[in-house]
Design a protein around this nucleic acid. Structure first.
Lengths: 117, 117
DNA sequence: TCCAGTGTTGACTATGTAGTACACACTCCA
DNA sequence: TGGAGTGTGTACTACATAGTCAACACTGGA
């Protein structure tokens, strides 16, 4: 398993290779945490940051917020809020899709988007 | 808004009306918390319990676990686990269904269950 | 050569979460 | 009439979360 820390370190260093603005210290400053903390996060010495910090980090590195949150074992709170409004319906839907192939979910998304309901 | 505490107090007292096994103390004992704590939970003096405790409580009172968790502002961790395996797909799906009418979600559930994918 | 910028170490802290422990007061019914 | 069972008030605790802060050692360019 790649792990949250490894992933963002790799992502950041890839960017840093061509752009000095992606040093650990400068990223830390932009996302408003101490360099020491980001260093520990990247090396997995501390658990992944809070949702808000992960989101800022994802934005800075040009990564997908939902995916980065997932690597940290978290589900975006805006998704949670949607689920919480209709817990029964969404619980059933999600459990139903547990073992569905990826393309099935994508297809459902498309159908809903195209208003086939 | 009804609130978590009010809801379970109502549910418990309704059961207690015909069955003495649903006194606050006896329920507390079965779900393995102190009576004082359950008392405070029911009156909203403390935040709702942990997921595990809510699940035991729901089972004891014959309530829907997902709904009770939702009233506590929590999404069941087994649902989270499903989402976390494919964060992108589920994030898109859920956001797409944010404003969909209830029957649309139910319909999707049915279609998936019936293997229309 | 020196210093600006780099990553890192170790100690510490504030807030939130999820309760326990124990005593108190009331009621009812045997 | 007194004891079993009821709900409640107050104080306290253990652990997790989400970081800060100050100081250290290394490196590359002016």
């Amino acid at each position: 398993m790649a792990g949250f820390g490894d992933h963002i370190r790799n992502a950041r260093e890839a960017l840093a290779a061509t752009d000095p603005r992606f040093s650990l210290r400068q990223v830390a400053q932009r996302i408003d945490v101490e360099p020491a903390y980001l260093s520990k996060v990247e090396r997995g010495l501390v658990p992944p940051p809070s949702e808000a910090t992960i989101v800022r980090l994802a934005a800075d590195l040009g990564e997908d917020g939902d995916v980065l949150l997932a690597m940290a074992g978290k589900v975006s709170s805006d998704l949670q809020a949607i689920i919480l409004r209709r817990p029964k319906q969404f619980a059933e839907l999600i459990r139903q899709l547990k073992n569905a192939p990826n393309h099935a979910i994508v297809k459902v998304v498309r159908e809903v988007r195209d208003g086939k309901w």
